[in-house]
Design a protein around this nucleic acid. Structure first.
Length: 421
RNA sequence: GGAGAGGUGUCUGAGUGGUUUAAGGAGCGCGCUUGGAAAGCGCGUGUACGGGCAACUGUACCGGGGGUUCGAAUCCCCCCCUCUCCGCCA
């Protein structure tokens, strides 16, 4: 969330930013609650100081055998006033906190201003569109024919959007996960973690999924848990409510399945593996100082790109504009793979700098050179998401006979297998 | 799931209603002492919010949340976590 002091001192800038985001936020209501809160704090703390003083004198009077009933009655009256303040304070603070939790992050000064995804500039690209001299097949046709997955049986188990991988398709999932984890831990300096796949409400609030996006998640009501939509949630919140004494930056990578209800996307990209409710992903998360977060964000994006380069896949990097950027992010690059049969770009990674937005929600701090606690900056990105990566491999490396060549980098992880046929 | 024991500051560890302004010890920082160090001695050493240009000052915080009371680390209620034993179990 945003610092209430920042909002207080930069109200116009915050309002302008919310307009650029197409976000409906009542900044003035927040400022009014903040003003009332400070009023109450001032008045009730004076009363509390007075009460503390008199209570102490009552203790003394009683010890000396005196009668304190008159003073007690007087303090009781003060106590009633304090209780009234406390009660209003609870309401005002709860209201203020909730409103703050619904305010998205400030876009970075370098984030391009724009309305929709059509306004997202392309930053760079790597490789070239593969020229196929035959009519390419769709991945869902290739996959069923080669026995890589069985979407019908997956749907039988859980409904559409829950893919069942089979045989070498299942092995390819495992191989890609291992390949990416090895790359990030051995060459990019990340420390691997394996996390819970369900998290509680506080954790979901820390990274910004709650309270606003509750309907996007699967829940376990009996235990008050949510299935994670991304490893960002458990990995970022590892250090929630801590003052870190480790050297920054801290780099973590994790494989997890991700669970998304895709409530707002019904009927969109429904075929094959394009948009599913459960998918595998390798995630990268960084905790940095404010001074290095921009540089670390660029490096993390390159770490994700490296995966695609090693697999020889044509991709482009776009930067999300203010109207399209995620709720908690300040700056964000999307990486998109070219899929020749789909004849379109597929998003496989979203690399975001959250600045101190998540750190403030989750309470993740470090000590600066003066030893004062400061909020860290958090950065994360997919490195990368599996289903669309698999689609791109299948569509780009397919042969006229319907077989699929495996990229050299993944062959060692497939027991030396060179081709799916 | 059942029974019991616990959760206090950076750590250790006291504290069952009122100089606790959380003792004592350790650690850390600064200073004194010393040729230098150790030991010793002195001082300091949390977080958040409010007020103040600042020095500073007020309030809250002893796992979390409520309550009782003039006053709560301490008493009551609910919840969370850790440990031990039993049960079940990959």
């Amino acid at each position: 969330m945003l610092d209430i002091k920042f909002i207080r001192e930069n109200a116009d800038a915050v309002k302008a930013a919310m307009v650029n985001r197409n976000a409906d936020v009542d900044v003035d209501a927040v400022l009014a609650l903040d003003a009332r809160r400070r009023e109450i704090v001032g008045e009730s703390e004076v009363l509390k100081a007075e009460r503390n003083k008199i209570s102490k004198s009552i203790g003394k009077i009683i010890q000396e055998g005196g009668d304190a009933e008159a003073i007690k009655a007087q303090v009781r009256e003060m106590g009633d006033k304090i209780s009234a303040f406390d009660e209003e304070m609870r309401e005002v603070e709860a209201d203020l906190r909730l409103k703050l939790l619904y305010i998205p992050n400030m876009p970075s000064a370098t984030t391009p201003v724009g309305q929709t995804e059509d306004d997202n500039p392309v930053i760079r690209s790597w490789g070239e569109k593969k020229e196929l001299d035959f009519e390419p097949q769709m991945h869902w046709d290739l996959g069923e024919k080669l026995g890589l997955f069985d979407l019908e049986r997956g749907a039988k188990l859980s409904g559409s959007g829950f893919p069942l991988f089979t045989g070498r398709g299942a092995k390819l999932e495992r191989a890609l996960i291992q390949f990416m984890l090895d790359l990030h831990t051995e060459e990019h300096g990340y420390v691997e973690v394996a996390t819970p796949f369900m998290c509680n409400e506080q954790t979901m609030t820390g990274t910004g999924q709650l309270p606003k996006f509750a309907e996007d998640m699967y829940t376990v009501p009996l235990d008050g848990l949510y299935l994670i939509p991304t490893a960002e949630v458990p990995v970022t919140n590892m250090y929630a409510n801590e003052i870190l004494d480790k050297e920054l930056p801290i780099l973590h990578t994790a494989y997890t399945p991700c669970f998304r209800r895709e409530a707002g996307s019904a009927g969109k990209d429904t075929r094959g593996l394009l948009r599913v409710h459960q998918f595998d992903k390798v995630e990268m998360v960084k905790f940095t100082t404010p001074e290095t977060s921009e540089e670390e964000h660029e490096k993390l994006t390159l770490d994700a790109e490296k995966v695609l380069q090693k697999l020889g896949l044509h991709y482009r990097v776009i930067e999300l504009c203010t109207g399209d950027i995620g709720f908690s992010a300040s700056k964000c690059y999307d990486i998109e793979l070219w899929a020749p049969a789909q004849d379109k770009w597929l998003e496989v990674s979203s690399c975001s700098n959250f600045k101190d937005y998540q750190a403030r929600r989750a309470g993740i701090r470090y000590r600066d050179e003066n030893g004062k606690p400061q909020f860290v900056h958090t950065i994360n990105g997919s490195g990368v998401a599996l289903p669309r990566l698999v689609i791109a491999i299948m569509e780009n490396y397919q042969n006229p006979d319907g077989s699929i060549d495996l990229p050299a980098a993944i062959q060692p992880y497939m027991g030396g297998l060179k081709k799916l046929d």
